[in-house]
Design a protein around this nucleic acid. Sequence first.
DNA 1: AATGAATGAGTCTTCATTCAT
DNA 2: GATGAATGAAGACTCATTCAT
Lengths: 189, 189, 189, 189
Amino acid sequence: MSDEQKKRAIILKTTLRLVVEHGLESAPMSLIAKEAGVGMGTIYHYFPSKDDLINVLYRELKQAVHENMLRNYDYNAPIRERFFTIWRNLFHHYLKHPLDFLFLEQYSISPTITLESKAFGFKLWAEPMQLFENAQHQQVVKEMPLYLLMLIASAPLNNLVRGHLSNQIKLDDGLIEVAITACWDAIKR
Amino acid sequence: MSDEQKKRAIILKTTLRLVVEHGLESAPMSLIAKEAGVGMGTIYHYFPSKDDLINVLYRELKQAVHENMLRNYDYNAPIRERFFTIWRNLFHHYLKHPLDFLFLEQYSISPTITLESKAFGFKLWAEPMQLFENAQHQQVVKEMPLYLLMLIASAPLNNLVRGHLSNQIKLDDGLIEVAITACWDAIKR
Amino acid sequence: MSDEQKKRAIILKTTLRLVVEHGLESAPMSLIAKEAGVGMGTIYHYFPSKDDLINVLYRELKQAVHENMLRNYDYNAPIRERFFTIWRNLFHHYLKHPLDFLFLEQYSISPTITLESKAFGFKLWAEPMQLFENAQHQQVVKEMPLYLLMLIASAPLNNLVRGHLSNQIKLDDGLIEVAITACWDAIKR
Amino acid sequence: MSDEQKKRAIILKTTLRLVVEHGLESAPMSLIAKEAGVGMGTIYHYFPSKDDLINVLYRELKQAVHENMLRNYDYNAPIRERFFTIWRNLFHHYLKHPLDFLFLEQYSISPTITLESKAFGFKLWAEPMQLFENAQHQQVVKEMPLYLLMLIASAPLNNLVRGHLSNQIKLDDGLIEVAITACWDAIKR
DNA sequence: AATGAATGAGTCTTCATTCAT
DNA sequence: GATGAATGAAGACTCATTCAT
């Protein structure tokens, strides 16, 4: 990684940490610069504005989720197994990157995130949607609008990770399997 | 309702609308005052600070959810029926009060909402938790930590309402029943 | 004292306390009203404005000093004795009414106190000035402008009372005599 | 002096002038900025808050007094001469820097000035106190608590400078000597 | 390319004063 | 006469962004 890329990366990383720690409005550019060890102008060299910085961060984190969700994904495996693989990957990714999760949780709704970024983030669900479509075609899951299916099946994921990070529950591999089973039971026919 | 209560109410209502429309940081007190048709100082007569205003709003909206979730609730009805009643009430309440839902969605995580307010909001789940405890005792639902159960069963609710309000899906009474059934299937034994 | 006079008096007394405790700008009319046990409008019934209230207070406290400084004053006594009498009275008055002293100390310079009020306060020194004039005429004190004489002789008074109230020194009747002697020695021929 | 130091200095100088002219509460940061020819944010770059700005100013002015009071001070000169030297220096310093004097006069009492700053300002009197201690030891001055001695001897100084600046008297070198003599006579044995 | 001092519009908040009851 | 809710102008302070070095 070149020096420039390193600097860009450390700015994004610092932004992530500070925004999660203090909130978007309490993470001034001056603080980000100081904590990242660069001058304020340097940030503006890589990112035209704070809004842009936040949106780039959002998209990179979404991209990372995207790249991890299909780890060990076998397109020929049975539907139920493919479902479990994706969901397991998501759980693990979020638990491994709590800051990413908290940032995405909190700012997915924010007006700071542009519609374009939101649309980008939505592409995340392309493969699962495909999976659900197959599943419905094969009458493995309930008959209902595809979106409904996806929203129902994915909902517990965020809720549980949040519960884990706020210490309401303690997720381990066993409970994760229990949880995914519940997700599956919610939609399976 | 006295004049004073009316003014307090209109301030809260205006705040709700503006904060949901523009976000917390883009809803200045001056704008709230103008839109509420009062002087800025008047807001400070009823609420010591913006943070307090937001927290009071949060608690009042949570309180309204609380009061509606147990409508037609029969403590002697079968567990599954009681579950459906609460979930149905919640769906209807949120769909009827979209601003309430969006505000609670967005600011439940925010650092502006104090731990005290969050704890207050959490009392919302006392009765469902009781219900789940009974259900588990009677082996009607899966064996897992109570919190996990609750987080799983409640997750789709928020997700679906959000999907509905963002026009990804169109919830009607039929789909609501389908959704609640999915929630139930997720946890039922 | 009539009810109205009592109310007026309690407003002044409360103002004195709060202004000394918190400072002029941190003693809002609303607080004065609350602590005085009256409505805010009531204050405005007795005093047209906050500035006026402060000026009236200033003049009443000055007036009280004036009335006390000549206690036991014998116009026929020797000059030195008359000097001691006045100075002793002043010391005792200020030590007995520390709030009065602190208020006069702090706000004599303030732009809030009008020139008119300051002029009123200055009349306090009419009799001592007369005394000094006599003293000079009889060559009891040094030859210098009258004002200079007065400023020199009166200066230690405020300084010592302030030192006493801030616990730098502990004035008692003995030290007060020592102090007045010093004042006298400063100007005596 | 670097550009940055110059800016800091002009802010302090402008603050001094405006605060003395209008009073602390009538010298808004916006006015200080405008008169200093800088942006408001610039002030906050050098001073974290208005209170801090005022305290720094206080300490710098006190420091300047400190540095001037011992000009031509000969530690081996007779006590009386040393006393005259310090007092003369103080008179001249204050008359030369009337704004400094008025600021210190007015805000030494103010709650805005922190105890720390007041303590700093008090160090000003270390050398005179030493002098008085010697003087007392050599029985040159009256027997009384040291603080009392100092408060008595220093009191006319402020009073006279104030009188001069408000045109009640007109101090010249001759009257200054007369005044210092009076101060000395007040405490000499 | 990198820096960070400088900017000033935009926030929250306070408080003297008014006036309907 | 008494009240205190209502007002809004004014103040301290923040922070995204620019630009001279």
